[in-house]
Amino acid sequence: MYDSPLRKTEVDTNASKISARDVQVYYGDTHAIKDVNVEILDKTVTAFIGPSGCGKSTFLRTLNRMNDTIDICRVEGLIELDGEDIYDKRVDPVQLRAKVGMVFQKPNPFPKSIYDNVAYGPRIHGLARNKAELDEIVEKALRRGAIWNEVKDRLDAPGTGLSGGQQQRLCIARAVATEPEVLLMDEPCSALDPIATSQVEELIDELRENYSVVIVTHSMQQAARVSQKTAFFHLGNLVEYGDTSQIFTNPVDPRTESYITGRIG
């Protein structure tokens, strides 16, 4: 493995990685997230499910302070990464985002070559000592993004020239290349075919060995397949959070049950 400055020393399995307490998010006057308390565990895949517009993406974006880029967005409450408040004034959001990577709902490759897209993060953070090492990082990331075989002969072609599903996998590879400790994925498979989806799910499972992964999904099957913990959001509230098996077989809240059985959504 690489001597990445971002790599953390081993932590006890399933220790808390991110803890959110009484989090409120407002867009201007809209109260988008209400009183959310959640512990996201290390080396665990956590799925966020819930109907459209319930605030899954919003909450996900608070976890790496991507909401800072939205002028009207305001976050209250405490969010800690490894016990440190990430909204503290001393915390550099740029450093934070290198540790907490993100894959977006819509694929957003840079107008650069496929290679440069993946090498973007490693170059910024100086993860490679030389070109050979960078090549290695890029190849590994593309393999993990389940796209290596499709692009290995055209690494110099623009990333924007790929199909939508390929672009999304390129974005996953790009996020993985930075070796984040936590990977936030916002509906990463919504544009993918079943084969690519299962490859990405394999990747998520593999990432779990070292990192913590949070995935937003509208597919109950996917949530059940890949995650160990599931959080159900409804109208800005975290209605229920628990082991995936428990949520899907024996939900406590009636709203959760209605949602997963397809009655609200």
């Binding site: 991507m66 985002r97 977006f104 910024i124 996020a175």
Partner: peptide, 11 residues
């Protein structure tokens, strides 16, 4: 979305 992508990688 391009800015978000870049910020999201810690740029």
């Amino acid at each position: 979305s391009l800015r978000d992508g870049s910020y999201g990688l810690g740029a």
